[in-house]
Amino acid sequence: MTRPPKRTIAPIFWLLFGAGGMLSALFGTGLVIVTGFLLPASPPSYQAAAAILHNPLAGLVALATIPLFFWHGAERLFLTLKDMRAGPRPLLALISYGAAAVGTLVTILLIFLMEFGS
């Protein structure tokens, strides 16, 4: 019997991609309608918008959706760049997953500040 092949870490990114894809399929359209069309028609004040995030539940929802959308996009971007042979694979992974990681960290930081800051 031959030795089983080496595992890849692809499942981590694939599950994040899948979770983000599920959320964007469920809520993406609604979010685009609300934030892209309804809110700009009568924009709320910054305070009013920020007040929503003071609610811990709203904070959790934002924490789940925003980073997972990033990871969903990152996986698509990575696979597209890889298929286009746009560069060495580790570099492409670093660019796409790195962008999602930075986006995730910034999101966590901002939401944390809004929840617990002043």
Partner: peptide, 14 residues
């Protein structure tokens, strides 16, 4: 399943 956990297994599919 042990045969397909690698890069050339199921994970080459996009």
């Amino acid at each position: 399943l042990d045969l397909i956990h690698g890069e050339d297994g199921v994970w080459s599919c996009t």
